[in-house]
Amino acid sequence: MSAPTTAEAAPPAGGGSDPVDLAGLPVRPAPHPLRWAAGAVVAVLAAMFLNMLVTNPAWKWDVVAEYMFAESILNALWLTVRLTVYGTVIGFAIGGVLALMRLSRSPLLAGVAWVYVWAFRSIPLIVQLLFWYNLAILYDRLSFGIPFGPAFVTFPTMELISPMTAAVLGLALHQAAYAAEIVRSGVLSVDQGQREAAAALGLPRGRQVRRIILPQAMRTIMPTAGNEVIGLFKGTSVVYVMALGELFYRVQVIYNRTGDVVPLLMVATLWYIVLTTLLSVAQFHVERHYAKGSVRVLPPTPLQRLRSAGEALARRTARGGPAPRGGTP
């Protein structure tokens, strides 16, 4: 390799020239022709898809725009959001208790929690909702009092269990079964040593769970819980069977009247997409919060990532050549 170079105009092929110079040479990234070709194909397909959406008058975008912020739609959306919030909050509250019961040393508590999860995972949500809705057929009066003893107050079931109550009950009890398993998996994922250390320090039981175990369990709980909340949000559409005016039901009512099936489905779709996006963003930030201390450096937020990518691009175009070696300073 150390052949003396006599003619400067003709450097030796193979790049084995002066070794001192190599470290300072810029690096040209490897070419990726197939990646570029695949990118072009995908870009064309995406353009065709957009064109299809925009140019076909059957989508009736004007109708979509008309109904997107209509009061009846917004009211229905609000009901959907409320159902999601109630279902999530009550569901995860019951689920958390069930998870702790499952993990307790009492075989009775653990057994009851297991049976609950088994039962509510086995019954389809829609069936359960109809059961609650029709509870008055089974028990026409509900009373509160001493078990097996006298009652203090008695209500007619029809008054107590409105369609809204039935929907919230059904969604929350259904969600609780899944939430219980999610919380349990989170608690199990925390190193046994953490609990021992908390016990060895004499921390009270409640403090151990709230301060030591749960914050660490959240790392495992959050991704699945995010799935569940988004699933529940879209799943609220099944309460249309109880003629409850949430988003999907309202949309059906309108298109049955006007015949604009596709545009109104698109209204619902767009709202589902918007809120799911918001939920995903919220999930990302909650996860980031609980990652505190478990990773040395937190991953950048999408915004930070976008900014640094932009800066890198600007640097590259400003230099007008291949990037230097060694990455960004």
Binding site: G193, E196, A198, L201, G202, L203, I212, Q216
Partner: peptide, 22 residues
């Protein structure tokens, strides 16, 4: 609860530290 109170008078240092990472 009483056992936890007794433990507060006994310091324990683990082989793997078991510090609370968060």
């Amino acid at each position: 609860r009483q056992i936890l109170r007794q433990r507060a008078a006994i310091g324990f240092v683990f082989q793997n530290f078991h510090l609370f990472p968060h």
